[in-house]
């Protein structure tokens, strides 16, 4: 299934350097329409008012965490089908299980490489 790389992608991380890194990596795999949010609440607001095809979010943020954002997205009738990738340093089994139970589409552990990001995006969007 061909992936529409012109879609809007929302990247969420409270660490601006990481946003910059992800944005550049996405650009290299030809996702050029990228927006940023620095916490879950801002992301949710942007998702509700915009038209996004993919969310890539960190977990550990305040006041709303990435997991809470995911739960809000899955509870929202308009957003519940949104492909959602978690990119986080939280790599314990219970984290992955909790994210899966909340409905995460895929899970990338930091530090990650461009190939992993590309592979997960293709898997998620290929099944969307």
């Amino acid at each position: 299934m061909a992936i529409d790389k012109s879609m809007n992608v929302l990247i969420v991380d409270d660490y601006k350097t990481m946003l910059r890194i992800i944005r550049n990596l996405l650009k290299q795999i030809e996702f050029n329409n990228v927006e940023e949010a620095t916490d879950g609440a801002e992301a949710l607001s942007k998702l509700r008012s915009g038209n996004f095809g993919l969310v890539i979010s960190d977990w550990n943020m305040a006041p709303m965490t990435g997991l809470q954002l995911l739960q809000e997205v899955r509870a929202d009738a308009k957003l519940k089908q949104m492909p959602f990738i978690m990119i986080t340093a939280e790599s314990k089994t219970e984290n992955v299980v909790a994210a899966k139970q909340a409905g995460v589409s895929n899970y990338i552990v930091k530090p990650f490489n461009a190939e992993t990001l590309k592979d997960k995006i293709e898997k998620v969007l290929g099944h969307a």
């Binding site: 350097t17 990481m18 890194i21 290299q28 550990n60 930091k110 530090p111 490489n113 461009a114």
Partner: peptide, 17 residues
């Protein structure tokens, strides 16, 4: 080369945490 640099720079996030 730039891809590798971007990847390597994510160390900063992990180090910070």
């Amino acid at each position: 080369a730039t891809t590798q640099i971007y990847e390597a720079c994510s160390f900063q996030d992990i180090t910070g945490q």
